[in-house]
């Protein structure tokens, strides 16, 4: 079956099945679990035991089908470097955090003059830590231990 697909067709099929596999495995991980409470989110999965069991069986069948199609068409797995994923995520988050500093919040209305003092130092520390984590997982050397990293100047991105 390997030669029935052109390269673009093979890439499309691999990507779609890969995304579905990731979704199925995420659901598979969530199904048996209890609720999870973070600081700013509460994850809940309100399903009966029967629904969880039937859901798990459907997911197993779907994963078997993906395995079979992959075998028949010799679809190759991608190689995901999680360090790069974490690093990229932290870089994106850096931009979002910068956009949440008090001066940027004026897009959503007048900013209380007291806000900067209460908000910005914590956001700046989060920004530093995001960059530090990005560097760490990408294997860049860190001269200071994390809790002694000097504060960086973000003036150029503030305005």
């Amino acid at each position: 079956m390997n030669d029935l697909l052109s390269t673009p067709q093979r890439n499309s099929l691999t990507n779609v099945l890969r995304m579905m596999e990731e979704h199925l495995r995420q659901a598979q991980a969530w199904l048996p679990g209890a609720d999870e409470t973070g600081l700013l989110y509460h994850r809940s999965l309100r399903l009966s035991q029967e629904q969880r069991e039937v859901g798990a069986r459907i997911i197993a069948m779907a994963l078997d089908e993906i395995a079979q199609v992959s075998r028949e068409f010799d679809l190759k797995p991608s190689q995901d470097d999680l360090a790069a994923v974490i690093g990229a995520g932290m870089s994106l988050m850096w931009a979002d955090l910068v956009d949440t500093r008090s001066t940027k919040l004026n897009r959503f209305g007048a900013v209380d003059p007291r806000l900067a003092q209460q908000l910005d130092p914590h956001l700046d520390r989060l920004i530093e830590l995001a960059l530090l984590l990005s560097s760490l997982v990408r294997g860049k050397s860190i001269e200071q231990p994390p809790d002694e990293t000097p504060r960086q100047n973000f003036t150029e991105v503030r305005d």
Partner: peptide, 28 residues
């Protein structure tokens, strides 16, 4: 999985340092 392989090639020291940074960020 079937169509993806995940790797995280970090030393124990790098992992510990990264987790320390994450803990500090969560404190913030």
């Amino acid at each position: 999985g079937i169509l993806y392989h995940r790797t995280l090639r970090l030393s124990a020291e790098q992992r510990a340092a990264a987790r320390q940074v994450i803990a500090q960020a969560l404190e913030q």
